[in-house]
């Protein structure tokens, strides 16, 4: 929706940056005026959010930035509606931002919208973000926003998992791990056996985060067979899993992991692993 003349006039009241290009010139009075401006823009609801979005411009190499004020204004709105005073207004802004995803707008602008959704979005926008998981250019941004929003995010991440490939799959697996999604345990185990080392690392880390005792053998086997960066990461995942199992009251399962690491990490360069496992083993008994 094109910005109304009234909205354009409000946006224009945002102070210009200083000659150097920063907002060091803001005074306390100007700062207060900006907050009032944001409140005034918010009164226009969804239409004004869409109008601001329409004023955004894609940054291009060598071209001056054309949307400094609406860019700033949109963020002020996104922050202001999270003050807890009006959840309906917050959801309205978040939904307006989400409504502009997936269309023809440049991906750089859509990434900015997702960034601001990450600030103010809630459960009402997770479906929209879930659709962006299928866009390779937006997948990781959407996954990060979902992991930040949390509420309702595991379901849409799980639903997207069979449909995403490559780096998108990595993004989705990792964010399911961030959310400690136990329903994704099988996917995590598959990731641990994937050809992509980054996915194997993600799988190990994820299984540790959900304290999945049934994954211990596969994780240790993968760590034992790995070298260098992969070995460092998978062994740490096994140690993390053991700690998580101790915390969950599963000391025998944890002790088995510690005992294996203490027994197998005999290279002097892995002495710290052996010693850490021995400490863990003593504590798990």
């Amino acid at each position: 929706m094109p910005a109304s003349e009234q909205l354009k006039a409000l946006v224009e009241q945002i102070p210009d940056h200083d000659k150097g290009g920063s907002y060091v010139n803001l005074t306390p009075e100007l700062g207060e005026a900006m907050r009032k401006l944001a409140a005034e823009i918010l009164k226009g609801g969804r239409d004004n959010v869409l109008g601001l979005i329409d004023m955004l411009a894609e940054p291009k190499v060598g071209e001056p930035i054309k949307d400094i004020k609406p860019h700033y204004a949109l963020h002020m709105l996104a922050v202001q509606v999270t003050d807890g005073s009006d959840d309906k207004a917050r959801a309205e802004v978040a939904l307006a931002l989400a409504s502009q995803l997936g269309g023809d707008r440049p991906k750089a602008i859509q990434k900015y919208l997702i960034q601001e959704i990450q600030v103010c979005g809630g459960k009402e926008v997770v479906e929209s973000l879930g659709k962006m998981l299928l866009d390779p250019e937006l997948c990781d941004d959407a996954a990060r926003a979902l992991a930040a929003i949390k509420d309702g995010a595991p379901e849409v991440l799980l639903a997207a998992l069979p449909k995403v490939q490559g780096s998108g799959r990595l993004s989705v697996v990792k964010k399911l791990a961030v959310l400690k999604c136990g329903k994704a345990a099988d996917a995590f185990k598959q990731a641990l056996a994937d050809a992509d080392p980054d996915l194997r690392i993600a799988g190990g880390w994820a299984l540790a985060r959900i304290a999945d005792a049934s994954a211990a053998d596969a994780l240790l086997k993968a760590a034992d067979a790995a070298k260098d960066w992969l070995r460092i990461n998978l062994t740490d995942a096994a140690m993390s899993l053991a700690e998580a199992l101790v915390a969950a009251g599963k000391k025998p399962e944890a002790a088995a992991i510690y005992a294996h690491i203490a027994k197998t990490r005999t290279d002097p360069a892995e002495k710290h692993l052996k010693e850490a496992a021995e400490r863990g083993l003593a504590a798990a008994k």
């Binding site: 990060r144 930040a148 993004s171 990792k174 791990a177 961030v178 980054d198």
Partner: peptide, 15 residues
């Protein structure tokens, strides 16, 4: 929302 700044999900492949 403050907690979204306490923990900020990372870009892949980092965690």
């Amino acid at each position: 929302v403050a907690n979204r700044l306490v923990y900020q999900p990372m870009r892949e492949p980092w965690h």
